[in-house]
Structures are given as C-alpha cells and as structure tokens.
Design a protein around this nucleic acid. Structure first.
Lengths: 219, 219
DNA sequence: TGTATTATTTAGACTTATTCTAAATAAAAA
DNA sequence: TTTTTATTTAGAATAAGTCTAAATAATACA
C-alpha cells in the first residue's frame, strides 16, 4: 500500500550527501534511488527514476541553476523539489521560493525537520523550516498586490540580454561585442541599459556579481 | 603500537556531523571520542579526552572564535585542529591559517581528502585541500593590518591599489572614488592602469573576477 | 489570420569617462 | 643620504557611454 518515497540527492558537498544518505537509511519509508552531480546527470536521472523528491542544495553560486530547477518542475509533475540551503541569504531564498519549490531547509536543521520536510515535499505540500519561515514572514513575498501580479521579481532577462551579460563578464568591450555579434554598438548600450534597469543595479561591477551569483558565469 | 587517532567533532551542522561520523566509522584507525556544541563544552572535552584532532567548522559568524581555537592550540600541544570550512569563507581562510591550524578543508572535499587530512593533522603535519591551496597560491596579498610577512607572499599590489580594487568591486564610479578618497580622478585612473598592468588583465570585469577569486571581495 | 506584445535593432547629438604623456611630491628602503 | 617605490596630479586627445526616439523582427494571442 504505502509505497516508498523515492529521492534523488544532488548536493555537491560530499559530507552532506553522506549525512543525508545515512539519515534517510534509518527511515524505511524513504529510499535514495540515485545521486546526481551535474545538471545533465540530474535531468536524466529524474526522467529515469521519476522520484518523488529531489533534494537539492542552493548556494550563492549554484551548480544547478534556476533554469534547471524550473525544467525539472515543468517536465515532471510528480517530482517535487526540496532545497537545502547553506546560507540564510534572504534574496536567494525568495528567488527560490518563487520558482515553486516545495521544501526549503537550511543545513542547520535537525533530523526531525529534515525527515518531516521529505514527507511533506513528497506529498506536494509546502515545508519551510522555522528559521527560514521567520525570514519569510518578516518580508512578505509580494507586499501589496498579490492577486494579479505573481511577478514581483525583477523582470526576466531576455536571451540576448543574458548573452550580453556573458560577454561583459568575459571582459569584452562594447565595440568587441558589437563586432562579434555583428550589431551596432548602440544596441549593446541599449541592452546594457535595459539589463541594469531590470536588475535595479547601477554598475558593471554589480552586474558581474549578479552574473556570478546566478550562475550565468563561473568564477 | 598503532594507537587510534582520537577525534572530537564540533560542527554545528547536524548533517555534517552525521556525515563525518559515518565516514570516520568506516575507518578503523580513527575514532570519534566526543562531539561538542559550545566553546565551553569543547574546551572541557578537549581537556578530558586529549584528542589528536579537533575537527571544527569555520563560518563567517563562527560559534567557535579565534580565541577558542588559539586557546586549544596553546593549552593542548598534542591536539591539532582541522578546519572544515564552508566555501563562502574565503576572506577568513587566511586569518585561520595564520592562527596555526594544521588542516584546512572545504565541505566539498571528498572522502579520501578528508581521511587524508585527519591522518596528516593528527601527526601535526599540514594538510590543505586543493581548492584552498589554489586560493592561497593565487592570493599574493597581505592585508593592510600588518600581518606577519612570512605567512603570505609579498604583495605585488600596494595598499592603495587594493583599496581601489575594493571600491571598484563595490561598484563605485571613478568620480565617486576620487571624492571619497579626496584625490584627483586622474589618480584613480593611474592606480587602475597600474593594477591592470600588474595583474596582466585588460578589463574591469576581469578585475572583479580576480577580486572575487582572491577573496578581496565577497560574492 | 490579423493584431498586440515583446524583443531586437539602430542613429545622431550629446555628455562623460578614460587614456596618454610626463612629472612632482611623499614615503620607505638601502 | 641616496635610491627606490608609492602616491599624486594636469591638460589635451580620444574613446566610451547616454539620451531620445523610433524602426524592424519575432512571438504570443484570440
């Protein structure tokens, strides 16, 4: 009757994976069916195993990007994502929660909270650990108009804009970019202006930091 | 004749402790004799058990202060400290290394590296994992606060130049920097030119990446 | 299908940022 | 003290970036 809850682990920290594995091994209702290291690896294994839960880290410089998480959620309706975050950085928490993940823990959570979160996530319920919950309550996800606007995050960047960000972080000058893309240097400026506006930032430095944080570029 | 290596664990993250415990349990030569949560707890247990190795986290807001580490090292000559750092702590790496800890890992290290580090640390040898080692080698900077010079390579960059880098990575414009430092904007340009020349790079982007890599600035 | 929306592209006039050359002054080391 | 290194600066020339405003291309929508 009660089928086991199947789980895929993706945390890049070996010790965390090991700890989780033993923790889960103590519970007969939950079974780790695979571990994944790369996004490609993960999407393949999610497809193969159709797990109930993917347990995933979320660092400042995530190995698994938001797009990866989104893709998994979109293509596997029965698979839910449980984030175990290493930090309590507010901004990334809200970003992740908006993506539609079901569980959110920190690595300071104890055994009961972790097991509880796995059960809840597998059922498609939300589970957010206390320390995170406090943060969430402090600053409501969307302050005022939640009914119509489900989009209080900074506007999404277009493909071209992300391309420009990549080139910027590679240190290319505006002219070089224009030449490379065979477009006017004015276009580059326009894109950049829109990027800074969308991200509500003011400088190339912040842009690069953003790119690193969101995993657009590798450090 | 081969006595077991005795270890005390102090990491506040439950999963990390659990992972370490199971990892160590697989190795007959190493034995966890205690776990400690608070500094008082730790100093008492170190005194009681006289372990070969104390495995300790080091976060940005450490539960165990530098003074705690120093105290343990000073009062227990046969006890060595192995730091397992979360990788966000780049700035503090150098601080910790100067304190005289013997081992330094990140939580991304694998089993072999961890076991190897415990062995090395227990013998009083140095063990620094590869990712940290690279950082150490890359960073040719002494911090401004009169660090002992033998501990880090002589700085290629001057104090002022590092100051400029910090401001650049904070996203300040040249004019803002000039105003802040009460110097001509030309001076800023000169510094920047020299910085780029010294680091053999060509753009602000690369400079920011450099600053992030070497821990001048946090991501 | 046509229409609205969004993304991508561009120019010209204008402003600001940066480089170059070259050197003076200050601080530290030999 | 002398020498070296660090920090500072200016003026002229050049390059980079901004602003306004809009055209075109691609996509979603009904």
């Amino acid at each position: 009757m009660n089928k086991k809850i199947t789980v895929i682990l993706t945390d890049p920290q070996y010790l965390i994976r090991l700890g989780l594995k033993y923790l889960i091994a103590e519970n007969e209702q939950i079974q780790v069916v695979a571990e994944a290291i790369t996004p490609q690896d993960l999407t393949k294994k999610v497809f193969d195993y159709q797990p109930n839960v993917v347990i995933m880290d979320y660092y400042n410089s995530p190995i698994f990007s938001k797009a990866d998480i989104q893709y998994i959620l979109d293509t596997n309706p029965k698979t839910y994502v449980l984030i175990i975050s290493s930090d309590e950085d507010r901004d990334s928490i809200f970003e992740v929660l908006r993506m539609g993940v079901n569980g959110f823990l920190t690595k300071h959570c104890d055994k009961d909270e972790i097991i509880g979160a796995i059960y809840a996530t597998a059922k498609g319920e939300k589970f957010i650990c206390n320390s995170i919950l406090n943060l969430v309550l402090e600053k409501q996800l969307c302050d005022a108009s939640k009914a119509t606007k489900r989009d209080c995050a900074p506007s999404k960047l277009t493909k071209r804009e992300i391309e420009i960000i990549e080139l910027i972080t590679q240190g290319l000058s505006t002219k070089e970019m224009a030449k490379l893309l065979n477009i006017s240097h004015h276009t580059i400026y326009t894109h950049r202006k829109n990027i800074l506006k969308k991200l509500r930032i003011n400088s190339a430095s912040e842009l690069i930091l953003y790119a690193i944080k969101t995993g657009i570029v590798e450090t």
